[in-house]
Design a protein around this nucleic acid. Structure first.
Lengths: 207, 207
DNA sequence: ACCTGAACACCGTTCAAGT
DNA sequence: ACCTGAACACCGTTCAAGT
């Protein structure tokens, strides 16, 4: 280890170095290939050093997942904010595309966000908060579509929307969607449009 | 090991004993907790014995996944066959409920079916075939809705349907859906109905 | 405060045998 | 044919120390 590297870690950068290394390691071989010792090797520290910043291996994965949800929420928010104010179908489609793009582009983080059973027990409240933040971006947008509908209805619509978006990402990542036209960015819109239309019509009928 | 048990294995039952033990082990702690050595311990054989029936650990998971897809296809088929002949919305909803029920009831197998990166390389053609079989059940049903639509359109609709169904299962299994009313069997229908209606309307508009 | 190194009880997989 | 047992190169985590 260079003196410069040692200084960085002594100033608290090891935590970030570990998180960045984790994402890279996960990108290469998925959660199965992610080991504490290999991560430490790459970052250039003894494998015990990670325990200074994370309680255990799962805590590193939980931190990666929480970062992922925050980045996802930001991307979803940016997508709707860049859309026309009164085109509800297009606004929601734009958010759906943002979601799917995130999942495909950030495969390593995305798989951790939905993969291992991280929030079985009540550990990792930071992860819970990050998940809630991303759900709130969606709920706020659905509320614009139907301002006077009961909140359970908004929640049901949000679950339908997230189901479709997450499901599509999964089909992409597991290569169930792989024909040439299905890999085009526009294909997500082709698949989502009828679904989102159905959700909007249903909200309108309830109002 | 009892003499009786040894006889069973010598007559080729070890393979099934391993598969059954694997599902149980997976149910307890997910893929992370699934180890060859623990599996062998439970079945009562040396851990090397598994290699007589499976090339490696991944091959056991692939066999569990393939069995899962075959069971899922059977359940989906039974659901539509029990439905009214000319109620297309209800037929598809019934199939969606069957899918979701399978995912929730058979969590261990379901997670393996979508979890680890099993079909990265072209290994496990039996798994590929089982996946195709379950997709075919859905395509046949969508074809009934729109007999004259191009086959790409059927495929797109199938992907939308599967996205929603798989996504919903994931939200259940990761406990993003957990309020009391959301755990009722009927809740799947509540969420799926607008989505399926959107897909059917879209197919009808194309025809 | 922050990092290391040896030790422990586990893995999956290979090799060489046993019946 | 079918199963075993020792060995190898790995794990995550704990304990006791080093600077």
């Amino acid at each position: 280890m260079t003196a410069e590297a040692r200084d960085r870690y002594h100033h608290g950068d090891l935590r970030n170095a570990l998180l960045e290394g984790a994402v890279q390691l996960l990108a290469e071989g998925g959660v199965e290939a992610f080991t504490l010792r290999e991560l430490a090797r790459r970052v250039g520290v003894n494998h015990r050093a990670a325990y200074r910043h994370f309680e255990d291996k799962r805590a590193i994965l939980a931190a990666v997942a929480a970062d992922g949800y925050r980045a996802l929420a930001a991307k979803m928010r940016a997508a709707v904010e860049a859309s026309e104010r009164d085109e509800q179908l297009e606004r929601l489609l734009s958010m759906g595309r943002a979601y799917i793009e995130f999942g495909v582009d950030e495969r390593a983080r995305y798989e951790v966000m939905f993969g291992p059973r991280l929030n079985e027990d009540g550990r990792f409240p930071d992860l819970e908060a990050a998940i809630s933040e991303s759900v709130r971006v969606l709920s706020a947008e659905l509320r614009r579509v139907a301002p006077d509908v009961p909140k359970e209805k908004i929640r049901d619509s949000g679950i339908a929307f997230l189901s479709a978006a997450h499901g599509f990402v999964t089909l992409r990542l597991t290569r169930r969607v792989r024909a040439r036209r299905e890999l085009l960015p526009s294909y997500a819109t082709t698949v989502l449009r009828p679904v989102v239309r159905g959700i909007i019509d249903d909200l309108a009928a309830t109002a």
